[in-house]
């Protein structure tokens, strides 16, 4: 006989079946990464053997060396470029979005609500569809093929403004701002000494999400940077996979090198990334 469950699911303890299912989910999530590692550490013979080899080999450094020394792929430079691009985009997003979020949350000015509505509206605009015109614009500016072309379009995000506004509204008490003003602090001063210290957790969340998203950006960098000496790591990866004769252990060694930084970020900041995604959902 089934006993009625008198509890909400979130108060119900997970049974062994729950854990078993979750382990399966985790295995599927991690498998391609594991497989990437296996191929990246193997010889050609091991990669092509049937049945497939399922344990890592010892060729990782051989394969990585081949990737990094390949002509016309610029893999080393591409990793540095990716760090620069994702780093600059993250810094500007945090700065501009927290400034705007602060203004929308705590300052009074005409048309504030209308402007905030515009921000929310822009959340739904698929800007990717403007790539043709963006390419022409970058051509006029002379930025195509440079890192500026992949930094400038991502320097702010509507989600960032929205997220910051919500956080500032809750995390910064009005009295704190008022007392800083009574001491004669101008708005920018209030931002820097009152708001920024209070919203550090939100900055970490938005920073991680932005860094990951920018690092993984593929379509626009491919359009503007392909064929130059300044690819991002995603563009270099597609170069690695193009050509008449593709060597899988080499391609996946490159993929591994471009993935590891993000896995490390997930291990360090996983809690923040999870939080960012879950909070974004409730507020959308």
């Amino acid at each position: 006989m089934r006993t009625p469950i008198a509890r909400a699911p979130q108060d119900t303890r997970g049974t062994w079946k729950t854990y078993l299912a979750l382990v399966a989910v985790l295995a599927v999530s991690a498998f391609p990464l594991y497989w990437m590692f296996v191929v990246a550490t193997s010889t050609d013979a091991a990669v092509n053997s049937i049945p497939p080899t399922v344990t890592p080999g010892d060729q990782l450094f051989v394969n990585l060396h081949e990737v990094f020394s390949m002509q016309n792929v610029y893999f080393t430079a591409s990793l540095i470029n990716s760090v620069i691009v994702a780093g600059v985009v993250t810094a500007t997003t945090l700065f501009f979005c927290s400034l705007a979020g602060f203004a929308f949350a705590k300052l009074r000015f005409p048309a504030r609500n209308a402007l905030m509505f515009v921000v929310i509206l822009t959340l739904t605009v698929p800007t990717q569809l403007g790539v043709v015109a963006l390419y022409i614009l970058m051509g006029k500016l002379g930025w195509n093929g440079t890192l500026l072309a992949v930094i400038a379009p991502f320097m702010v995000s509507a989600f960032g403004v929205f997220y910051m506004r919500q956080f500032v509204a809750h995390a910064v008490p009005d009295e704190l701002i008022e007392s800083a003003r009574l001491d004669g602090a101008l708005t920018l001063r209030v931002y820097w000494s009152v708001v920024v210290p209070a919203i550090r957790p939100a900055l970490a969340v938005l920073g991680l999400l932005t860094f990951v998203a920018t690092w993984n950006e593929f379509q626009w960098p491919l359009i503007t940077l392909n064929g130059t000496e300044y690819p991002t790591s995603m563009v270099a990866l597609s170069d690695l996979a193009s050509g008449n004769y593709v060597i899988y252990r080499r391609v996946l060694a490159g993929a591994l090198a471009a993935t590891v930084p993000l896995i490390v970020l997930l291990l360090i900041g996983g809690r923040q990334i999870v939080r960012g995604i879950m909070e974004g959902a409730v507020k959308s």
């Binding site: 990866l237 993935t259 896995i263």
Partner: peptide, 21 residues
């Protein structure tokens, strides 16, 4: 929760190449 996000942070270029193999 962090575990189910592994695919989300993996660059789509990298994971697609794994699937291609």
């Amino acid at each position: 929760r962090v575990g189910v996000l592994l695919p989300y942070v993996t660059p789509v270029a990298a994971s697609t190449l794994v699937f291609a193999v």
